[in-house]
Amino acid sequence: MKGFFTDTTLCIGCKACEVACKQWNQLPDDGFDFTGLSYDNTAHLGSSTWRHVAFVERPVPLGGTLGGNFSWLMMSDVCKHCARAGCLEACPTGAIIRTEFGSVYVQPEICNGCGYCVSACPFGVIDRREDDGRAWKCTLCYDRLKADLTPACAKACPTGSIQYGDLVQLKVNADARVKELHQRGMSEAYLYGVDQPGTEGLNAFFLLADRAEKYNLPPDPVVPTKNVRKSWASMGAAAIGLAALVLAAVVTP
């Protein structure tokens, strides 16, 4: 089981991961827009954007650091490759599969662009490209993994903020890193997505230094299928009600 550990306290916002991802995967650009939102001109993950660096400017210091009443939070966001993935469970064609590396992969030659996965993802990651017609997202560089290479973003990251490896080892590293940061006085550091109950864990997890909402991450994501039983039960009862109603109205003289 492979995955990413993204340590946001090491991120310097260079966007090398975004560029490496675009270049290796031969993805088209998204147009060259200025959003006016700090240094973030990418704004979100999308069908042609599989890494996205978020920039948060805060008027408060980060624990254990110098620099007065200001701090940067930067985070390279990516598909979480959920252990229980909403997109995969929703996909009606079988285009979305779980690979031998534990990652979630969309097969472009199967996807027919029904769009269900787009609404089923609790992280807003996967998207359908209108001109292409299909859904696309991070593949965890499936082609590179097959050749025993590190994913392009992790390879390009100059500070080790994006770490790729075996999930068990990554979690050990992450725990050690949180302890180290706490000792240095950064008491706000915590891990996001390790043993995430709603998705039974994320294969791409993060070390954050503020509330998840600040980074546009859901605070407690739940795979939609976990709650759907109630909906089926309610539908069953309503359908029986409809049968009774129709019979009563039509069969009685």
């Binding site: 993805l27 088209p28 998204d30 069908s47 001109d131």
Partner: peptide
Amino acid sequence: ALRGEGALQQVAHLEQKLPVP
């Protein structure tokens, strides 16, 4: 050669919609 994971992506309109705050 276009052989990357995203190479099959058909592009007709480069400008993509940005999310609106």
